[in-house]
């Protein structure tokens, strides 16, 4: 019976490409919820803030738990505003990051090359509170990286990127963190300007959909020419929330609908841009769709 069942079940025709796509789409959906629906982690942090005296701030500010369009702009809620409690607050438990001045910062994917490490600038402050602590004071800053010292990233506002220096297993450990919350964007310029994407580029690489999750699979590509027009178009693009884009674009985790452009900038930091068929660009940890000029988009898409 065993062998008979095995033989028959193995006759099920498996659309392997689609199966893998669906699986990754499910993972991405869960990840996206972590990144954008801060209800997973915020429930705990907000409860913490409330417990230790941040309640007034929270009560004065209407909670905003989802990315929404408000007065024509796309609003990614402030960390402290988002007081949705999910009851499943451990879902984001593997995300390395910290809360600084009541905004969430998460570790970037960029390799920490020597170039990047030289960007470590002025010391800001020490963060020793962990997200598990409670106390008598308002905790604006709390980390899950262990005690860390925060530094500026030369060339960037501390409200955009930070270095955190701490220890892991007895060794010095550095994280480059990027802010994830508290944005109001109408155009691409509102978001990307602070990332200084307009600086010279050291090199480009691209990944297909199947490779997007592994930075080591990125292959060099020469797209200097289309990149400038593409970047201009990205800066001028319209920001949209997920519900405003076609379903095929919103559900973009498929081989034919996503390509990843990895841009290593002059300062050494590598950023990833997800190009979505239909003319959209998504920044990996921000669930906002930027609708780019179709001509510039097409030229870049076809160059990858």
């Amino acid at each position: 019976m065993n062998e008979q069942v095995k033989q028959e079940v193995d006759k099920i025709d498996i659309p392997r490409g689609q199966v893998r796509s669906q699986l990754l789409a499910g993972v991405e959906r869960a990840r996206r919820q972590r990144f954008t629906g801060r209800k997973v982690a915020t429930g705990f942090v907000t409860a913490l803030l409330l417990t230790v005296g941040g309640g007034m701030l929270l009560q004065e500010t209407p909670p905003a738990t989802e990315i929404v369009r408000t007065d024509g702009a796309v609003v990614v809620p402030n960390w402290a505003q988002d007081k949705q409690v999910d009851g499943d607050s451990t879902a984001g438990s593997m995300l390395p990051g910290l809360v600084y001045k009541q905004e969430l910062y998460l570790a970037m994917e960029t390799p920490l090359t020597d170039d990047v490490r030289t960007l470590q600038g002025e010391r800001l402050e020490r963060v020793t509170a962990t997200l598990e602590e409670t106390g008598d004071d308002v905790i604006e800053n709390a980390s899950n990286l262990g005690p860390v010292t925060l530094y500026r990233v030369d060339g960037y506002k501390p409200s955009v990127r930070l270095f955190a220096v701490g220890e892991e297993e007895g060794r010095k450990k550095v994280w480059l963190l990027e802010r994830q919350t508290g944005f109001t964007v109408t155009t691409g310029n509102d978001f990307f300007e602070d990332l200084h994407l307009d600086q010279p580029v050291k090199h480009f690489a691209y990944q297909t959909f199947d490779e997007w999750n592994d930075a080591e699979t990125a292959r060099p590509v020469t797209v200097d020419r289309p990149y400038r027009a593409f970047l201009n178009a990205l800066y001028q693009s319209d920001a949209m929330i997920r519900e405003e884009v076609p379903k095929e674009a919103a559900d973009y985790m498929h081989p034919d609908t996503m390509k990843v452009l990895r841009v290593t900038q002059a300062d050494g930091i590598t950023v990833s841009l997800r190009l979505i068929a239909g003319g959209y660009v998504v920044y990996p940890q921000l669930d906002v769709f930027f609708k780019v000029d179709p001509v510039a988009f097409k030229e870049m898409w076809e160059a990858l």
Binding site: I12, I14, L23, A25, G26, V27, R29
Partner: peptide, 27 residues
């Protein structure tokens, strides 16, 4: 996918189920 197909008996539902499983598992 095989498990999903045995339950749902068509490829589209099975694919959708795979996504949902991955979503819940990751979460």
């Amino acid at each position: 996918y095989k498990m999903s197909y045995l339950y749902l008996k068509n490829d589209q539902d099975a694919l959708e189920n795979v996504q949902e499983v991955a979503y819940r598992a990751w979460k």
